[in-house]
Design a binder for these strands. Structure first.
Lengths: 333, 333
DNA sequence: TGGATCTGAGAGAGCGCTCTCCGAGAGAGA
DNA sequence: TCTCTCTCGGAGAGCGCTCTCTCAGATCCA
């Protein structure tokens, strides 16, 4: 269809002025009932839908928000359900507020620039940035240009951008504490990538809890993927064949680790206890089922969206919101 | 920042007219080099970014496309990697074409209407619809209104909307053929939901191949999830305790089924061979590793995007594109 | 009954951009 | 030197909408 009807045409059809149609469309209360009905009918008959571009040109709003996922190679599309969970949480909240969600995948080199231009072109009313690597300059840049920004995961570096995060340190401490409480003495960890805050904080939690009880830390670093968990586990077994527990910073790494432990003839949990982090579906289905730290991943997305929506209407929001994590005890530890 | 610079201001700053700045921004060749450079500098100095709303108001294009995922409860956010794969494929292609991807989650009741309005408001230049349930009216409606639409997965019903799909029938036939070739005689299937084309076609493939070799079909229906696979497997064991092979229409269902088989003391593959469909990461990591039908899920997304981009510039595209599937033989069959 | 008050609809000015003319000036041919 | 063509920048008209003004007519009180 070429000629979609305009306000003008609806007005002509209903025998009123453009302004009146606009009032009806935007639900202004100062329109007399009979006229409102007539306009409504004209809109229906012509199948009129307001042109968003024209509208946002004058209102300076677009009613849509971007969600930036700055990596997509390693994690976004593995089966750890992290990003899908965030997308779902954000999506729910946006839908409830009748806003649109624009997903932006920042994988390639040029994409930072692309995203910046996109936001500055007033394509969206605000930006959510999830799970950054290192001290990403993007949130700071956007915030400085006056674009409402909320981060998922505490941003590294000294940018002051509001963020929502889960309690990674606390979750890791709970996991290690559980291992200590159940009599484990040589507790290793498979840490996440050390350029991501989730990786850093979970390792910190592990270290803090061990230090508090005077144990030695045994560390290998992975990148949250199953394969990296397997590699790290092999290394740990070499470093300390006597280890009797492993805290993995992701369920996927725990899964990879358990496979390696099995290959090396170690029984889980009798010989080696394993605790993961995330509580993805797989945790229930792995053999043995996985004790893990549950993080409210949908909740993270929802909270990010809620904060951003408030920020976009110039409300004051807290610098940070930290959501609690919870240890789920199953068979592996 | 409140006052973002406009074309007008850049023009004033560079000492030229609005039209000239517009020419430079849009790369028109009829601008003399020195003027181009001067304008470029002014743009840089002022940090000018063209306002998208104003631009699309006149060009009638937005350079963004919507990807509609019409379900999000069961599949979108389980760990079957299907939707992430599509998102990634579409995203890559869109990024290469310098277009934006708008993700729309159609879960709630009102969302069909919302999506329709969104597309008709010319918010996007075209719409991709992935994995519909039943005979969804959405693609037909949009297409009728002149919105370029491409479906992922053959649409049910008699709408004539171009689509891209994988060869579900062929894949299922390959799987069953492999089971027959390896001497299995009582081959059951755990079918997918029968209101989705992937569920229907995979069951059809199974039936066709069995019929061609005069075997009886043994069917239970799941919904592609792990839990439903487990339930279906229990039912199949009750229906026919002698079965020696199972073709599951998704890897997740195969995973659930294998767990149940183990619980019932059946060894995979010695007692019962299992073949899945999808080839998700988990297939390599399950115990035993899963023989499955690989579908080019990224390729599906990419192809959908490619077709839509062509359609949006009024090129003629084929009614359908079907991508090949391939049997990957591992330990479970 | 006259004027003050209120209600509700129309007129019109943009929002920031693109794009079609148009015309000024330069270069070229006679 | 004069005109004809050609190049390149400017003027200006919208794109479809919102929103402030403004004013006509209804309502009300003295």
């Amino acid at each position: 269809m070429v000629g979609r009807p305009t306000l003008e045409q609806v007005a002509a059809h209903a025998g009123v002025s453009r302004a009146t149609v606009s009032r009806v469309v935007n639900g202004s209360p100062t329109v007399a009932e009979p006229i409102r009905v007539a306009v409504q009918r004209a809109i229906e008959e012509l199948g009129y839908v307001p042109n968003q571009a024209a509208r946002s040109l004058v209102t300076q709003r677009t009613d849509s928000f971007a969600l930036v996922l700055p990596e997509w190679t390693a994690r976004v599309f593995s089966d750890d359900q992290l990003f899908p969970g965030i997308i779902r949480g954000v999506g729910q909240e946006m839908e409830a507020a009748d806003k649109q969600l624009v997903l932006m995948l920042a994988g390639s080199a040029a994409s930072h620039d692309r995203i910046e231009r996109y936001a500055l072109a007033r394509h969206v009313d605000g930006v959510l940035i999830a799970s950054m690597h290192g001290a990403d300059p993007l949130p700071g840049t956007l915030a400085r240009m006056g674009v409402p920004v909320v981060c998922g995961g505490r941003p590294l570096g000294r940018v002051r951008v509001p963020y929502v995060d889960v309690d990674n340190v606390g979750g890791a401490r709970q996991a290690v504490r559980h291992l200590l409480d159940t009599g484990r003495t040589r507790i290793a960890t498979i840490a996440g990538p050390q350029d991501m805050v989730a990786g850093i904080d979970r390792l910190n939690g592990y270290r803090e809890e061990l230090r508090d009880s005077d144990r030695r830390s045994i560390v290998a670093v992975g990148d949250f993927t199953r394969d990296s968990g397997a590699v790290a586990m092999r290394q740990l077994l070499q470093d300390d064949p006597q280890l009797d527990a492993v805290f993995a910073a992701s369920d996927l790494m725990a899964h990879g680790a358990m496979k390696v432990l099995k290959e090396h003839g170690r029984h889980v949990p009798d010989d080696v206890a394993v605790v993961g982090f995330d509580d993805i579906d797989l945790a229930k289905y792995s053999e043995p089922s996985l004790t893990t730290v549950r993080q409210p991943i949908d909740g993270l997305g929802r909270e990010m969206a809620r904060q951003l929506l408030r920020l976009a209407i110039s409300e004051t929001i807290p610098d940070s919101v930290v959501l609690p994590t919870e240890l789920v005890i199953r068979a592996s530890a």
